[in-house]
């Protein structure tokens, strides 16, 4: 049974697209046929993060409007056999998406894929609404910071009341909390909210904690999903996250301040 997964947050810049790319790639790595759909029409980024920006011919809006079929618009990943990307349009805006059009495309994708990962735009307007409307599960991406937590809370309220599952009275969307850009040192100094604080405020099961990492920016610029950088802390944390999403029990890592060695303390910068 195919699953529609939405990666959403309310607030912008918290790491939705990075997360969509990492989780989608992680699912494909574990043998699930996966497509990542960019709902951020007008501000498309997913193709850059996935490193397929030079191969975009047709996009999501073309398919919704019937100007191209899915086979023409799906971009196959160069690295993984069973991973595809459906890019957003750069020239249109969010009003180009209609509920009926999105439903038709998602249902068609559900027939051929195991996982459909929807990369939501920021905000709570039409684009974000359509990205989450048909979802079975939601990953709410939150930075450990009050405004991000508040926006995530608002988004959780919308997931519980404005989705198709809610409107049809079916089982609610399964909600997962993913904390990104986590900086244990700043948490211990009291400059950032801790994992427990965020969990308590949002009252949602914790799927993963991704540490703030140089590897994320590097990976974005190279167009390689950070989960493929298995040497990096962020890549490993995303790997754990995907395992948990698939039902495995994996202990959370990277939550505590790393003790610095003697030489690091002597020579290491901060």
């Amino acid at each position: 049974m195919a699953k529609i997964l939405v990666v959403t947050s309310g607030k912008g810049g918290v790491g939705k697209t990075t997360t969509s790319a990492a989780i989608g790639t992680g699912l494909a790595l574990r043998g699930h046929k996966t497509v990542i759909v960019d709902f951020d029409v007008g501000l498309r980024n997913l193709d850059l993060i996935m490193g397929c920006e030079r191969r975009v011919v047709y996009d999501f809006v073309n398919v919704v409007n019937g100007e191209a079929n899915l086979q023409q618009a799906l971009i196959k990943d160069k690295r993984l056999e069973n991973l595809y990307v459906l890019a957003a349009s750069q020239t249109r805006d969010k009003d180009a998406l209609t509920q009926e059009g999105v439903e038709k495309v998602l249902m068609e994708l559900k027939d051929t894929f195991d996982y459909v990962v929807c990369d939501s735009p920021a905000g709570i307007e039409k684009g974000a609404h359509l990205a989450m409307y048909f979802a079975d599960e939601a990953i709410v991406v939150t930075n450990p910071e009050v405004s991000s937590v508040r926006d995530s809370d608002r988004m959780l309220g919308l997931l519980a009341s404005k989705s198709r599952r809610a409107e049809k009275g079916e089982d609610p969307i399964k909600e997962h909390l993913l904390i990104t850009r986590y900086h244990p040192e700043r948490v211990s100094k009291g400059e950032m909210l801790g994992v427990e604080d965020v969990k308590e405020i949002l009252a949602v099961a914790l799927l993963g904690v991704i540490p703030e990492s140089q590897a994320v920016l590097k990976a974005s610029n190279q167009g390689v999903p950070v989960i493929l950088d298995d040497q990096s802390d962020a890549g490993q944390a995303y790997s754990d996250t995907v395992d948990r999403l698939l039902g495995k029990t994996v202990e959370h890592r990277f939550l505590d301040v790393q003790k610095k060695g003697f030489f690091e303390r002597l020579f290491g910068g901060n």
Partner: peptide, 27 residues
């Protein structure tokens, strides 16, 4: 029984309201 999130409004007309879960800022 589920958390009341920011931006949500719940009105118990003519009676009492019981919330078993948490109530977020802005709710």
């Amino acid at each position: 029984t589920s958390p009341v999130r920011g931006g949500q409004q719940i009105y118990a007309q003519g009676g009492d309201l019981v919330v078993i879960s948490s109530v977020s800022p802005g709710a």
